[in-house]
Design a binder for these strands. Structure first.
Length: 812
RNA sequence: GCGGAUGUGGCGGAAUUGGUAGACGCGCAGCGUUGAGGUCGCUGUGGGGUAACUCCCGUGAAGGUUCGAGUCCUUUCAUCCGCACCA
C-alpha cells in the first residue's frame, strides 16, 4: 500500500487496507511467505499548498502527517511489515530514483522537447489542470494561457505496441481496466499524406495530415491546423493571425477543456490542393480543437462524418458533403454528422471506389491502398499515447539530476553526487518555484568540464515516484535502486489493490517503468509486467445532510451532528435535506472518521463493516445503523463462543454431524469468497454459519470445534476478536499462525437434491431426488408428481428437459 | 466532446454464469423476556389478489432470441467515474 500522507486516514483507506490485510492474513495462514508493506507517496502539491496557506515547511508537514497517519493505522490491526516502510521524499529513495533517471537517460529512454503547460499570467506560474477552474487560475482568477516550455520526457510511446499487446496476458486484471488502457494507447491505422499548398510561406510547400478516415477524402471541405502547428507559428507575423492564435491558446491544456471549448477558427487564406483533383482547392484554417500532440497537428475536415468538423463547418459556412449514407436511404441534408461504427455497412455515394455498399473498415483499407498506388500517401499506424512529460516547476518533488553548462549544454550529474537533495531553506511567500529563485542551490559545477554551471530546477512528476515503489519494497534500503536477488525472489506483485482512478495513468506508467527498469538492469525480465493480478476497489460513500442558510447557500452537516430519527440538526432542530450517498468528502461533510468508529465500536467492527454487504469493486455506503448492527453481531459471536467454552452438553450424533456439515460449507464458502475477492459473500457465509452454530443442539465438543473454525474463518476480517475466541476455546498459539482449515469434501455433498419442476417455464412443483439419479428416472418421478398431473390436466407433453441436479421443464 | 462503468424489495446486496429471483444483513411488524425502555430470543416480511390455494405481476424502460432470460441481442433512459501538471 502506498497512500498519500494527507494526515488523516479515512474510511476509503480502512476498506482498502482491510482488503489487503484479509488477503495477506489468509495467504499467510495458507502457508505462503507474504510481503505486505506500507509506504508513503509523499511528494506533491498539497504540501506546498499547505506551506503557502499556513506557513511551515513541506517537509515538516509531510513527515508530521506520516507520523499521524501511521498512528491511526496501528489500531486497525493490519499485518504490515513496518520494517520496510519508506517515503518517496526520503533522500534515500529519491536518490535511487535519480540514479535510475541517469541510467534511463544513458539508455535513450529520456529526452527533452517543448510541451504546452497551463500558464497563469498574473501569478507567473505553471498550473496543474486541477488548478484551472473554468479556464481561470484558482488563486489569481486570471485567464489561463497555454504556453510552451522545454521539458523532460520518458519515451513511453516507444512501448505503445508492447504495452498494448501485453494487456492480453494480464488475465487477472479487470477487463474494464485493460479496455481503458487499450483505448488510452489508442492504436489506429490511417493514412498520412501531404497536401500541396498554395500561398503558404516558404518551407511550407506541403502540409502533412493524418486521418483515420481516408475513405471520406471526397467529403473534405477544409484543412485545419493546430494553433501550435509550425505553420501557424510562421503566420504569426500577421497581427490578425497572431491575435487569433493568442485567443485560441486561452484556456487550459486538459483534453476536456479543449474539446468542450467553443470551436473557433481563422481562415489563413492559404489553400491546399486536393490530392485526387489538383484543381479542387480547400481553405486552410487554424482551429482551436486540433491537438498538436496527435497525428501531425493538421487534419482535413469532413463535416458530414465528424461532429466536431460538422459544428465547425456549420459555424463558418463550409460545405457539408456526405460520402456515405445509411444503407437503403436517400441522400438528404444532414442536421448532425453521420458517424456509424466502422464495422457497420453503409452505402458509399462519394467513395473512392465508386457507388457501393461496404463497411467503413473495408473502405478505409481500400483508400489506403489507393493512396499508396497513386503515390500521394501511405498507410501509417499511430498511437494516441503521448510521451510522458515529467518536468514540474515545483519544489516538493524529486530533483531532476542534470546540470546546464554554458559550454557543455545539458550534462547528467555523476552518480557519486547523488542524491541531489532538496534544500531546506526555502520560502513559499512568492509564487513560482522556490528552487528557481534559491540564492545558491542552483549554482554548481559542470560534471563534464568543471566550470560553473546551474542545476536543473524542475522536479519530477510524482507519478515517477509511484511507478517503482513496489520494486523498492523488495529491498527498501539497498544502496542501488533494487537488490537483484531480492527483486528476483519477491517479484512480481501477486495482488495489487487500488482505486479505479488509477486504471489508466498510474498503472500504465508503472508498466512502462518496470520495462525501463528491466532494460537498465534494475528488475528481472519476468517483472517487465509487474502486477500479476489487479483489483480495483470501490469507494466508501455516505449520505449528505444539507440545510440552506439565509442567503440560500448550502450548509452541510456532519453525520454525528444530525439526529437521524427526526432528520434534524441536533443543535438547532433544523430539518436537514438528505442527499443520496456520494463519495465521502470534507467539503460535503459526509465523512465518518475511522478513529471515532474505532473508539466507539473497535477496529474489528470497522473492518467487518467495510468488507460486508457491497462487493469490494463497488462502492460501499457507510451507515450508522450498519455499523451498530456489525458491532451487535460481533458481540453475539463473542457470547456464543463464551457459552460454548462454558458448556458441557453431551454429544448428539445427528446434530453434531449437521454442525460439521455447516462448518465444512462455511470453510468452503469463506475460502472461495476470499480467493475470489468476494469478501461480502465470505461474510454472508459467516453470518449463516454463526446462525447455524447458535441454533445447533450439538454437543459441546462438536460446538467447540465449530467455534474454533468460526474463529479461524473470521480471523482475516476481525483478527482481534478471533484471537480472543480462539484462546478462550483452548486453541493452540495464535489463530493467526494456525494453518487455514480445509473442508472435508465428504461433508460438502448432499445426498438428495430438490429439483424444481417447471411447466412451460413456470415453476409448478418440486421433487426431492437422490443426487445422481439418472435423467430417465427423474422424468418418471416428475411426470408422476401430483401437482404436475394437475397442471398438465391430461395435455400431451411436447418436450421434456431435464438438467441433472438443476431443473426439470415440461413443455406442453 | 471522448472513453469506461452501474441500474434487482423500504435499504445494502445474492443468484453456482442461460436453470427455483430476492441468499445474507439492515429496516419494519408481531410475540416472548423485562417494572419500563434498550439488549436478547422467536416468527413474519417483493407487489397485488384470495376464505384458502406454488392465482397473477415483478430485476431502470421498450422490443427480441430461447423449453427457460436478472443473466444473451437491439434500442432507450438515468446515475457515476476518468481524460495525460490532483494523488
Amino acid at each position: 500500500m502506498f497512500p498519500y500522507p494527507s494526515g488523516r486516514i479515512h474510511m476509503g483507506h480502512v476498506r482498502n487496507y482491510t482488503m489487503g490485510d484479509v488477503v495477506a492474513r489468509y495467504k499467510s495462514s495458507a502457508g505462503f511467505s507474504v510481503l505486505h508493506p506500507m509506504g508513503w507517496d509523499a511528494f506533491g502539491m498539497p504540501a506546498e499548498n499547505a506551506a503557502m496557506e499556513r506557513g511551515g515547511h513541506p517537509k515538516t508537514w509531510t513527515y508530521g502527517n506520516i507520523a499521524d497517519m501511521k498512528a491511526q493505522m496501528k489500531p486497525l490491526g493490519l499485518s504490515i511489515d513496518w520494517s520496510r516502510e519508506f517515503a518517496t521524499c526520503d533522500p534515500e529513495y529519491y536518490g535511487q530514483q535519480q540514479a535510475m533517471f541517469l541510467d534511463m537517460l544513458a539508455s535513450g529512454l529520456v529526452y527533452r522537447k517543448n510541451a504546452v503547460v497551463n500558464w497563469d499570467p498574473v501569478d507567473m506560474t505553471v498550473l496543474a489542470n486541477e488548478q484551472v477552474i473554468d479556464g481561470k487560475g484558482w488563486r489569481s482568477g486570471a485567464a489561463v494561457e497555454r504556453r510552451e516550455l522545454t521539458q523532460w520526457f520518458f519515451r513511453i510511446s516507444d512501448y505503445s505496441e508492447d504495452l498494448l499487446d501485453a494487456l492480453d496476458g494480464l488475465k487477472d486484471w479487470p477487463e474494464k481496466v485493460r479496455l481503458m488502457q487499450a483505448n488510452w494507447i489508442g492504436k489506429s491505422r490511417g493514412l498520412q499524406f501531404a497536401f500541396d499548398t498554395a500561398g503558404a510561406p516558404e518551407g511550407f510547400e506541403t502540409l502533412e495530415v493524418y486521418t483515420t478516415r481516408p475513405d471520406t477524402l471526397l467529403g473534405a471541405s477544409f484543412a485545419a491546423i493546430s494553433p501550435d502547428h509550425p505553420l501557424a507559428r510562421a503566420l504569426e507575423t500577421d497581427p490578425k493571425i497572431a491575435a487569433f492564435v493568442a485567443e485560441a491558446r486561452k484556456g487550459g491544456t486538459s483534453a476536456e477543456e479543449i474539446e468542450t471549448a467553443e470551436k473557433i477558427g481563422f481562415d489563413t487564406g492559404i489553400r491546399v490542393k486536393h490530392p485526387l483533383n489538383p484543381t479542387w482547392e480547400l481553405p486552410v484554417w487554424i482551429a482551436n480543437f486540433i491537438l498538436m500532440d496527435y497525428g501531425t497537428g493538421a487534419i482535413f475536415g469532413c463535416p458530414a462524418h465528424d461532429q466536431r468538423d460538422f459544428d465547425f463547418a456549420t459555424k463558418y459556412g463550409l460545405a457539408i458533403k456526405p460520402v456515405f449514407i445509411p444503407e437503403g436511404a436517400d441522400e438528404s441534408p444532414l442536421t448532425e454528422a453521420f458517424t456509424p461504427l466502422k464495422s457497420e455497412k453503409v452505402r458509399y455515394i462519394r467513395g473512392l471506389s465508386g457507388d457501393r455498399v461496404e463497411t467503413g473498415e473495408q473502405a478505409v483499407a481500400e483508400a489506403i491502398a489507393l493512396a499508396e498506388a497513386k503515390g500521394f500517401g501511405q498507410g501509417v499506424t499511430k498511437f494516441r499515447l503521448r510521451d510522458w512529460g515529467i518536468s514540474r516547476q515545483r519544489y516538493w518533488g524529486c530533483p531532476i539530476p542534470v546540470v546546464h553548462c554554458p559550454d557543455c549544454g545539458v550534462v547528467p550529474e555523476r552518480k557519486e553526487n547523488l542524491p541531489i537533495r532538496l534544500p531546506d531553506d526555502v520560502t513559499f511567500d512568492v509564487p513560482g518555484n522556490p528552487l528557481d529563485r534559491h540564492p545558491t542551490w542552483r549554482n554548481t559545477t559542470c560534471p563534464a568540464c568543471g566550470k560553473p554551471a546551474r542545476r536543473e530546477t524542475d522536479t519530477m512528476d510524482t507519478f515517477v515516484d509511484s511507478s517503482w515503489y513496489y520494486a523498492r519494497f523488495t529491498s527498501p534500503h539497498a544502496a542501488t535502486p533494487t537488490d537483484p536477488a531480492e527483486a528476483d525472489y519477491w517479484m512480481n506483485v501477486d495482488q495489487y489493490i487500488g482505486g479505479i482512478e488509477h486504471a489508466i495513468l498510474h498503472l500504465l506508467y508503472s508498466r512502462f517503468f518496470a520495462r525501463a527498469m528491466n532494460e537498465t538492469g534494475h528488475l528481472p525480465a519476468k517483472a517487465r509486467e509487474p502486477f500479476n493480478a489487479l483489483f480495483t476497489q470501490g469507494m466508501v460513500t455516505h449520505e449528505i445532510y444539507k440545510t440552506t442558510d439565509a442567503n440560500g447557500r448550502p450548509v452541510y452537516h456532519l453525520p454525528e451532528d444530525v439526529d437521524h430519527e427526526t432528520a434534524t440538526v441536533k443543535a438547532t432542530g433544523e430539518k436537514v435535506e438528505i442527499i443520496p450517498s456520494a463519495k465521502m468528502s470534507k467539503s460535503k461533510k459526509n465523512v465518518v472518521d475511522p478513529m471515532n468508529i474505532i473508539a466507539a465500536f473497535g477496529a474489528d467492527t470497522a473492518r467487518w463493516f467495510v468488507m460486508s454487504d457491497s462487493p469490494p469493486e463497488r462502492d460501499v455506503e457507510w451507515t450508522s445503523a450498519g455499523a451498530e448492527a456489525t458491532a451487535k453481531h460481533l458481540s453475539q459471536v463473542w457470547r456464543i463462543a463464551d457459552d460454548i467454552a462454558a458448556g458441557d452438553a453431551p454429544a448428539n450424533e445427528a446434530e453434531d454431524k449437521a454442525l460439521a456439515r455447516a462448518g465444512a460449507r462455511a470453510v468452503a464458502d469463506v475460502t472461495a469468497g476470499i480467493e475470489g475477492f468476494a469478501f461480502n459473500k465470505a461474510i454472508a457465509a459467516l453470518f449463516a454459519f454463526t446462525n447455524a452454530l447458535q441454533k445447533s443442539q450439538a454437543g459441546t465438543a462438536a460446538k467447540r470445534d465449530a467455534a474454533k473454525i468460526l474463529a479461524q474463518l473470521m480471523s482475516p476480517m476481525t483478527p482481534h476478536l478471533a484471537e480472543e475466541i480462539w484462546s478462550g476455546l483452548g486453541g493452540q498459539g495464535l489463530v493467526a499462525r494456525a494453518p487455514w482449515p480445509k473442508a472435508d469434501p465428504a461433508l460438502l455433498v448432499d445426498d438428495n437434491v430438490v429439483l424444481p419442476i417447471q411447466i412451460n417455464g413456470k415453476r409448478r412443483a418440486e421433487i426431492s431426488v437422490p443426487k445422481d439419479m439418472a435423467a430417465a428416472e427423474v422424468e418418471k418421478i416428475a411426470l408422476a408428481n401430483e401437482d404436475v398431473l394437475r397442471f398438465l390436466a391430461g395435455q400431451p407433453v411436447k418436450k421434456l428437459i431435464v438438467v441433472p441436479g438443476r431443473i426439470v421443464n415440461v413443455v406442453v
